[in-house]
Amino acid sequence: MTQPTTTLLAPPPPVVSGDPGTARVVLSRFLRHRLAVASLIVLLLLAVCCFGAAWIAPYPHNAQNLLSASQPPSGAHWLGTDSLGRDYLSEMFYAGQLSLAIGLGVALLATLVGTAAGAVAGYLGGWPDEVIMRVADLFLIVPPVAVLAVSLQGLGPSPLTIVVVLSSLGWTLIARVVRARVIQLRHQEFVEAARVIGASGPRIVVRHLLPNLTGLIVVNVSLSVATAIILESTVSFLGYGVQPPRSSWGNMLTQAAGLIGTSQAYLLYVPGLAILVTVLAVNFLGDGLRDALDPQGRQ
């Protein structure tokens, strides 16, 4: 029942050209979005470097060598070494594993929960709507960083709890947006028409409403990835997030922050740029995907 109908009539008869809705057309539309394609390549490269760090990184994780501590960039250490003599490029790749995983994890979990909550609230209205949205308000009115700090201290700062805590703050945003759009769509005739053919409530939400939210959801996933990476960096920077010896771009920033005013202040830019590039690329990718998935998009 939940299988996508767009594939129902695929593959198209071979005589037809320009038949939209198939994976081929979506792909060709996406490929036309240069910035999104470039972003995808950057992200893939980054992901390969980070998750393949064991093979790609020039030095192993946390390999300290106090004899070569605090060195400027050189042939042996492209980005130099930190005060413990760890190769900074390798450290950045290893740290990226957690940052990217947390970013993606939060985006998926928050979007899943938020979309479900928003769709149910918007479609049913009445008291379910009230309850869900008041709970969302509760999450909105608390200062996120303080809550993160306190709850991570209480629950222990494992990557999994970080994902759960960040998601519990992030779902409200998508829930609101999805609810608003569902309320708007609910009164459209095609929803009424779906009821007329005898479709049930869950079927209408899954088959008729959610596909119309694709653009919204895709954009939100990309925004959430970005927000999650930044929030993770913030809490890690504050010392409540990822704890050494685990490393993330956020706690790399923390360590490098102590170097401000020294000749090694440039170390701050390495995790900073990694965060910036990832966030930008994810956003561009989201834009490209949204356009590619819209059947009314330019052919």
Binding site: T5, L8, L9, G21, F190, A199, R207, P211, N212, P295
Partner: peptide
């Protein structure tokens, strides 16, 4: 307005 903009015509007929 009464046809779902995100579904092909065939898919909507099939759903009915």
């Amino acid at each position: 307005a009464a046809l779902n903009p995100m579904m092909t015509v065939g898919a909507q007929l099939a759903e009915a």
